[in-house]
Structures are given as structure tokens and as C-alpha cells.
Design a protein around this nucleic acid. Sequence first.
DNA 1: TGGATGTGCAACCGTAGGATTGCACATCGG
DNA 2: CCGATGTGCAATCCTACGGTTGCACATCCA
Lengths: 117, 117
Amino acid sequence: MTDERRGDVASVDSVLVALADPTRRQLLDLLAAQGEATATTLAERLPVTRQAVVKHLAVLDAAGLVSGSRVGREVRYAVRPAALDTTARWMAALADDWDRRLANIKRIAEAAERDSP
Amino acid sequence: MTDERRGDVASVDSVLVALADPTRRQLLDLLAAQGEATATTLAERLPVTRQAVVKHLAVLDAAGLVSGSRVGREVRYAVRPAALDTTARWMAALADDWDRRLANIKRIAEAAERDSP
DNA sequence: TGGATGTGCAACCGTAGGATTGCACATCGG
DNA sequence: CCGATGTGCAATCCTACGGTTGCACATCCA
């Protein structure tokens, strides 16, 4: 009864790694707020270079959290809820799992105490 | 209508950072499976030193994901669902936020298309 | 056509973090 | 009491990663 979730462990990993960086989270905030934006535009609103932003966007893209589409000479990035949602569900399931295990341990402990007072 | 969640951004950050490492996740798996374990015991089941495990446990402890209690000469660690649950909810709320924004953008785009065919 | 403007690529730098080793200190059990 | 077992602390090593700089290439527009 341990593993009903095995929905792409690799993707969960990449999402967690992507979200672990504060600049990347800020980037996601900006994208969610603006709908679409280019690396150059985003860099103007952050204390880092465009190149740094480009690298971060690459990581976020690899994690499926954003996706970019070319429009003329610029690349517009937008947020992608699916991967985030998957990871959120993964975490929630994990939290539930822990809760159940702890409850079970508590039950066993009480039973043992009942037997040897 | 943007910020009903502001439940300790710092703690969410530390949880994400903690979960971003695969060894740390494995450690959490082992702890959840065993209920309680010491750094020495955990190290036997992982391809790393006890010291490495100790450091990882320190990170997990700082994130509130585990907690250790001294019993004689050993320190037993156990899993803590609360912090994980908080972060799971944070992520779910964020995913919902993105979904709403994207739906809104789509709505606006369709309205604009309706006006200029 | 030519100068803005925006991307892409590559080299480089500094530091944080994952991991190891070695040893000192506490605690248990015979 | 003494050896075995378990923790704690500190120094060290190495790589990955966030960040920068510099330049070449593509695209727009006047």
C-alpha cells in the first residue's frame, strides 16, 4: 500500500530543483502576473543579467514549468500549471502517507502500553 | 485577490531547498518507513557516510521536516508531516492561481478576437 | 541598406553545498 | 573499570551552479 503515485519521479525531481531557487520563483511570479514576457523584459525587473534569466528559464522549461514560443525575433515565455499541479499532488499524497504512518505507530504504541502497564 | 497565502515564505523556501536533494528525499522515505531511526542506522542503508547523513538531517530539521530526540547516547529522528503539508498547500494554491490567470488571459484573447476578425 | 534591438553561444569566475576523513567526547554493557 | 558503540566538531576536497562578460547572429524598421 505504498506506491499508487509513481507519476514521473524524474519530473517531480526537476520541479523541486527548479523551485528551490528564489530567483526562479520570482521569475515564475513575474510570468504569472504578466502572462507572457521575454527574457530581456524579465531581466529588467530583476537584479540579474539577461543571460542569468535565460539560464533560469531553461531550467524552468526543462521542468515543464514554463514554455517559450518564438514570435519574430523574440521568445515569449509563459507559465505552465500542469507540472506544478502534479508536484503539488505528489507532495500532498506524501504528507498523507506520513500522517497515516504516524497514526499507525501511535496506535501500536498505545496497544503495547495497554499490554504492559 | 493575489495573496491569501503568506504562510511563512521562509519555511516554504527551506522545505523546497530540503526536498530538492535526492539523498534527502531518500532519507525521508526511510524515516517514514521505519518510524524512527538514528543517523548511524540510516547511513548503513545509504551509499554515504554517517556524517553526510547528519548534515542532511540537520537541513531537514531546519526545514521542520524531521525532528530528533535524544535517547541515551543515540538520537532518534522521525518524520514531521506539518511542514510538508504546508508546502503542499502553498503549491496547490499557486497552481490554482496560474490556472485562473491563464483562463483569464484566454478569455481576454477571445474577446479581442471577437472584436477584430 | 544599415543601425537598433533581441537571441544564442561560449568561456570564465566564485562560492555554496554535498561528501569525506580524523579525532575527541559521551554513554552503554560486561 | 574498560572496551565497544554512537555523537559531535572541524578541516578539507571537489563539483555544480548562479552569475557575468564578450561577441556573433538574426530580425525589425526607418
